[in-house]
């Protein structure tokens, strides 16, 4: 399913220096094409979250150019679920639509629809406090997708979840991606997660944050639990692990 559509996002010679003087990323060239599932893989402190924020437009590059979809073409999933604790699951998901000025009834109806699609039918009226970690993350994903963005950005979204929940959410995310045809940039520090999900893995090195290597995972979609135990998967994991080791030594 590796596609070669037009670029949705392109970064040219991008650098980001923080006010503290830290050079977070430098010299990043990257084109993300329509329909890509791209993983940004690297040790902590390699600037992968910074890169994601640059793509989202939440930070401005100190040098270089970032072009991205405009308007509400971007959905963002944070490391934490980042839900409003005072609002129900439904109201949380409806937020982006209501901010755009969609009528409340319509926004809420769309929100309920999306909660159903992420497997949370029946929890529309639940407050975040009453939901488990995995369920909260599902609400967060529904909120990011409710505007039907072209580009979905995820910043280590499942890092805090237990393995069983993480595997299930991995599968559900892949299924949503194949059904809805959006483009994904997924930040992770897990080799196994990146190989399972992505068909392009960008390995990053630290100090300053930069792209070290890019690896294609040619295994076909749909991928499922059988893929997780296949020799193909293990071989890709080994290849990516070695690339990561090289990047960390560089």
């Amino acid at each position: 399913m590796a596609t070669a559509g037009p670029p949705v996002v392109s970064l040219r010679e991008v650098a980001k220096r923080y006010a503290t003087g830290t050079l977070a990323v430098q010299g990043v060239d990257l084109a993300i094409r329509e329909g890509d599932f791209l993983a940004l893989l690297g040790p902590s402190g390699c600037g992968k979250s910074t890169l994601l924020r640059l793509i989202a437009g939440l930070a401005e590059p100190s040098a270089g150019l970032v072009s991205r979809p405009d308007g509400d073409g971007i959905g963002f999933v944070f490391q934490e679920p980042t839900l409003m604790p005072w609002a129900t699951a439904e109201a949380n998901v409806a937020l982006p639509l209501e901010l755009k000025g969609n009528p409340r009834r319509e926004a809420r109806a769309r929100a309920r629809e999306w909660l159903g699609r992420v497997g949370l039918a029946g929890f529309e009226r639940a407050y975040p406090r009453a939901l488990s970690g995995g369920m909260k993350m599902r609400v967060s994903i529904a909120r990011a997708l409710v505007t039907q963005p072209r580009l979905l950005l995820l910043d280590e979204p499942f890092a805090a979840l237990d393995e069983i929940t993480r595997f299930r959410l991995n599968n559900d995310l892949l299924e949503l991606w194949q059904r809805e045809r959006f483009t994904v940039v997924f930040v992770t520090h897990s080799v196994f997660e990146s190989v399972y999900l992505a068909h392009r893995i960008v390995v990053m090195a630290a100090r300053p944050g930069r792209i070290a290597e890019e690896i294609a995972v040619t295994s076909p979609y749909p991928r499922d639990e059988a893929f997780r135990t296949s020799a193909d998967y293990a071989a890709h994991c080994r290849e990516v692990s070695q690339a990561l080791t090289r990047a960390m030594a560089a």
Binding site: A56, F76, F78, E80, T82, M84, W86, L95
Partner: peptide, 23 residues
């Protein structure tokens, strides 16, 4: 992060106040 989310969706100052800061 919620403030970032508001920025991402280009919420107005008033929306940020009413929907996020006041609650």
């Amino acid at each position: 992060n919620l403030l970032d989310l508001m920025r991402l969706y280009r919420a107005s100052r008033w929306q940020v106040l009413w929907r996020l800061r006041l609650p």
